[in-house]
Simulated scan of single mutants.
Amino acid sequence: MQELQIKHTEAKIEIIDKEAFEQNINEIVKKYSGYTMTAATIKDDKQVLASLRKLVKQISDKRIEIKKELTAPVTDFEAYVKKAIDPLNKVISSIDKDIKDYEAHQKQLRLDTVKGYIANKATEYMLDPRLFDEKAQNYLKASDFMADGVTLKKATMKSLDDTITFEYQKQQEFEKSKAAISGQCAEYGMTDQPYIRMLKDLTLVEVLEQIKSDYLFEQEKQKMRQAEEEQRQLLAAKRAKEQEQAQKSQEMPLTDPETGEILSGDQLHQNEQNALTGAENGLKRYTQKMTLEVYFEDTADKDRFKDGLSQLGFEHKQNYQVSGYQRIEPVTQEQLNELCGW
């Protein structure tokens, strides 16, 4: 093919009287350097600014004009070459398309060959051939086939056999794991599907441990619910019995079983309240505790404190205890403040 040959000359630009041009610029710069605008000269200042901008535009327009003249041959040359080689580019595109179409066709033939081999082999193991669609893409290189481009090499077939065998073994292990999980869940009376899904991320041992942990947790929750229900039933029975006794008390006066004294209405109400409080304490679950140090003037003061706690629902040896009770040498409030650091 004839090579493109070009003859060109170097463009040269000569500025006439460059020194006079630069001198004129310098004189204008010197004249207006440090120029100060005032309110009285604003009109003239605007005219000065306009004239300076006009001068710069004239110089810039000249630069653009010269550049356009110099680059015109380059622009024309580029347009000519582009038009001249356009048919050549079309031929290149056509050949490139044919090659890509051929390669795509060959690739499809190879893919059909690989999938056909996989389908026959997977049938022997009763596996779905679609499991290997992604792996089939790894066996489409020319090096995987004989010289005719469509016959698999022995090494390629062996690699495919190993892939299918490995998948079969994995499926068998998965089925065994599913059976183990289902058996464990059936023993505990639990649903197996959530735990079978866990096999995607956990080993069989880990899943079985999770099943056992969930079972024990549920058993503990069931025991707690049963205990709470028994407590509620016990309280309900106790209140029913107390209501029955209250009805009987309207017919005959009640006496204290220890003293034989006839109980007044206030005393009866207090006894009933204490009984209800004791039953309710049996349902409580304590989550906090506090150690309290109290100073009393005498035994009566201590008993008054204990009665106050009882009125608030706190009974000795039910929800509070006393440790370290002792008599001390009398101290004043000031001494107590100093002793405790108040």
Rank of each mutant, 00 (worst) to 15 (best):
E65D: 12
I66D: 04
L70N: 03
D44G: 11
A84K: 15
L52G: 09
F77N: 00
K83F: 03
L49N: 04
F77T: 00
I59W: 07
V48T: 11
Q47H: 10
T71H: 06
A84M: 09
D45C: 08
A50R: 05
K43V: 15
V56W: 06
A79T: 06
K54H: 06
V48L: 14
D44E: 15
A50C: 04
S60G: 09
E65S: 15
D45W: 00
A50F: 12
T71C: 04
Q47N: 06
Q47Y: 07
L70A: 09
K67Y: 05
T75W: 02
K43Q: 13
E65A: 14
I64V: 10
L49D: 05
R53I: 04
A72H: 13
V81F: 14
K67R: 07
R63L: 11
I64C: 07
E65T: 06
V56R: 15
K57N: 06
K43R: 15
F77C: 01
S51D: 14
A84F: 09
A50I: 11
L70D: 01
K62T: 04
K54W: 06
R63T: 06
I59Y: 14
K57W: 08
D44L: 08
P73Y: 01
R63C: 04
D76N: 03
A50Y: 09
E78Q: 14
D45H: 13
V56H: 11
A84V: 07
K82E: 15
E69P: 04
K54A: 10
Y80L: 11
A72P: 02
D76A: 02
A84I: 06
D45P: 00
Q58W: 04
A79V: 06
V74P: 00
P73C: 02
L52C: 10
A79P: 00
Q47E: 08
I66Y: 05
K57M: 10
F77L: 08
K82F: 09
Q47V: 13
K62R: 08
T75P: 00
V81H: 10
K67M: 05
L55W: 07
T75S: 12
L52N: 08
K54D: 03
D61P: 03
I66V: 11
E69L: 12
K62D: 01
T75R: 12
D61Q: 12
F77S: 01
L49Q: 06
D44V: 09
R63F: 07
Y80N: 02
K67A: 08
F77Q: 00
K62C: 04
K67E: 13
D76L: 00
E69G: 11
L52I: 15
L70W: 01
V81T: 13
Y80P: 00
A50S: 12
K43D: 10
A84Q: 14
R63K: 15
T71D: 14
V74D: 08
E78R: 10
K83Y: 06
Y80H: 08
V81K: 15
Y80M: 06
L55Q: 09
K43G: 13
E78G: 10
